[in-house]
Amino acid sequence: MSAAYVVSDCWTMTRRELAHWARQPVQVLVGLVFPVMMLLMFGYLVGGGRAVDGPYIDYLVPGMLTLTMVFGLEGTMTAVTRDLQKGVVDRFRAMPMTDGAVLVGRAAADMLQSAVGLLLLTGVGHAIGWRTHGGPGALLGALGLLLLLRFAMLWIGIFLALLAGRPELVQAVQILVWPVGFLSNAFASPDAMPGWLGTAVEWNPMSATATAVRALLGNPGGEPGHLTAAVLWPLLLLVIFFPLAVRRFARLGT
């Protein structure tokens, strides 16, 4: 198949997913507002900042931006399983369509929503006092790292959704995301944790991205040495789960 044919199929499936936004605006709105509520809750109600050298809000916002890239996968996972259950995927696979275009379209729509969510959360962060010190280039680089992490986590979610097969099982799988999200340095420095826990937190791919983003933006808790890990971790996850998801999709019904 030509590259133009593949792109056309993927774009058609992306437009299909975007059309769902107009029919389900509440779901999209909740997905955008939930991270903002989390940021305000931890910034004003819970507080924190033990072992953080600097304003806690400057430490918290990059962590929340990173956490947002892990949460919210249930929307994509539910959409994939719903299409499987209703037989929509079977109809698409019976058409002369590029293998995996359905998955790519779903992923592209999710990435667009994630980018909008990042911009919204960044604006709210600045409104409540968060400041960056790295310039526009550093901000774009930080957003790129965050979206790279989201893209990797997205394909993990798609693969798990294809394994689950039913929307009701997505909730059970989604529960696993919470320990991964909170077992990171999003809200607190590993220096304030017990040694064994701090070590586990340091090995979390989320922690590498959050630390690199803080370093790029000149926020507390940033360490430039984590930039390589923030790129390699998502790429490694993509190398593993992207082909697994495409292969699982190709074998559906066989």
Results as ranks from 00 to 15, higher is better:
residue 8 S to V: 01
residue 30 V to H: 10
residue 55 P to D: 10
residue 223 E to L: 06
residue 41 M to V: 11
residue 9 D to T: 06
residue 2 S to F: 07
residue 239 V to E: 01
residue 152 A to C: 01
residue 236 L to K: 10
residue 42 F to R: 10
residue 107 A to W: 15
residue 87 G to C: 07
residue 225 G to A: 14
residue 47 G to C: 08
residue 144 G to Q: 12
residue 212 A to I: 04
residue 195 G to I: 07
residue 166 R to D: 14
residue 73 L to R: 00
residue 31 G to R: 07
residue 25 P to C: 02
residue 201 V to L: 13
residue 121 L to S: 05
residue 13 M to T: 00
residue 62 P to F: 03
residue 141 G to W: 00
residue 78 T to E: 08
residue 49 G to Q: 12
residue 51 A to V: 06
residue 121 L to I: 04
residue 213 V to Y: 08
residue 19 A to L: 13
residue 97 M to Q: 12
residue 124 V to H: 08
residue 80 V to F: 11
residue 127 A to F: 02
residue 172 A to P: 00
residue 101 A to N: 07
residue 239 V to N: 04
residue 147 L to A: 06
residue 77 M to K: 01
residue 32 L to P: 05
residue 134 G to Y: 05
residue 123 G to H: 04
residue 151 F to Q: 04
residue 162 L to I: 00
residue 83 D to M: 04
residue 69 M to L: 06
residue 77 M to A: 14
residue 60 L to N: 07
residue 110 D to E: 11
residue 175 I to N: 14
residue 172 A to K: 00
residue 122 T to V: 15
residue 245 A to R: 01
residue 226 H to S: 13
residue 143 L to Q: 14
residue 171 Q to S: 15
residue 214 R to E: 12
residue 249 F to R: 02
residue 248 R to H: 07
residue 165 G to M: 07
residue 178 W to F: 15
residue 96 P to E: 12
residue 106 R to G: 06
residue 225 G to R: 12
residue 81 T to V: 00
residue 178 W to P: 05
residue 46 V to F: 14
residue 126 H to Y: 13
residue 152 A to H: 12
residue 29 L to M: 13
residue 142 A to D: 08
residue 125 G to I: 02
residue 29 L to S: 10
residue 239 V to K: 09
residue 70 V to N: 10
residue 88 V to G: 00
residue 68 T to L: 08
residue 73 L to D: 05
residue 40 L to D: 02
residue 160 L to K: 05
residue 172 A to E: 01
residue 127 A to G: 10
residue 251 R to F: 03
residue 218 G to V: 01
residue 213 V to L: 10
residue 217 L to C: 04
residue 4 A to E: 11
residue 54 G to Q: 10
residue 138 A to R: 07
residue 100 G to R: 01
residue 119 L to I: 11
residue 138 A to P: 07
residue 131 R to Y: 02
residue 75 G to P: 07
residue 8 S to I: 04
residue 132 T to V: 13
residue 21 W to R: 08
residue 141 G to L: 00
residue 129 G to I: 08
residue 48 G to Q: 12
residue 70 V to Y: 13
residue 253 G to P: 00
residue 55 P to C: 11
residue 62 P to T: 03
residue 70 V to K: 09
residue 62 P to V: 10
residue 129 G to Q: 08
